[in-house]
Write a protein that binds this DNA or RNA. Structure first.
Lengths: 125, 125
DNA sequence: GATGTATTATTAGATCAAGTAGTACAATAA
DNA sequence: TTATTGTACTACTTGATCTAATAATACATC
């Protein structure tokens, strides 16, 4: 595991972590079953907060790149390399782009679109 | 014309204007051909900026509630009452709500949904 | 001089992302 | 017991961004 954090990089730390793990999986540097360092351990090594690493791990697990097994540690998912190809964010952008296009087609102003969005995102809390 | 602005209301001023005009049209308080005060005049009466009133008028015109005739002033649209029934905003909210639901179903976090939305709304400027 | 319209710049307030800090829990290995 | 694991939660700070509104113009039309 050779993860490095560039504080000067504008990219958020948790994203740097996610990207580097994905890169290593994509390139085959680490494969299924590989054991990742624990959240606390990696946080200590990198000098960042546990929560930051936890955030990255959580995102990687959601994308089925890694699998957390509680006290047993965290491992590379069996379909990790394959799942690296799937970009959930891109799919989300497509959905949102279509919605915005449709709303604009109705004649709604950007201001109104923002109001709708904001109102909907507030409810969930 | 009895428009009142509640500064303490969380609703934006321009929206209060829009809603009140629509309300008056719906209730039949003002009908087709009725002449609205000029943007500058209403802005003075209410003690708000011209641009705020202009924004409201622009929105009402888009919804075919009023018709701006340049130097001749601004009047109630001939199909105003009917067009008040059509709630463009509600349709927009439906579209957006569906998009958000689909994105969440994919597993995207609210944070990521916001990032997608913000990125898409930036381009248009 | 009045109309609607358009532009740019600016301020105030709210909101959010990112990260940190601290704490707590159940499960389990040594 | 003792330490470690992932997980969860609240609270806080910092910086960035956006909205709403204001302010000040400017234009063509009549």
């Amino acid at each position: 595991m050779e993860i490095e954090i560039d504080v000067n990089d504008e990219t958020p730390i948790f994203l740097q972590l996610v990207n580097q793990v994905k890169e290593m999986v994509s390139s085959g540097a680490i494969t299924t079953g590989f054991s990742l360092p624990s959240i606390r351990q990696l946080a200590n090594e990198l000098g960042v907060n546990q929560n930051t690493v936890a955030k990255a791990y959580k995102m990687l697990e959601r994308d089925a790149i890694i699998v957390a097994r509680g006290y047993r540690g965290t491992f590379i998912h069996e379909n990790a390399q394959q799942n690296c190809q799937v970009n959930l964010q891109d799919k989300g952008v497509e959905i949102m782009a279509e919605a915005i296009t449709n709303m604009r087609a109705l004649g709604l102003t950007d201001s109104e679109i923002r109001i709708s969005f904001t109102a909907l995102m507030k409810q969930s809390k």
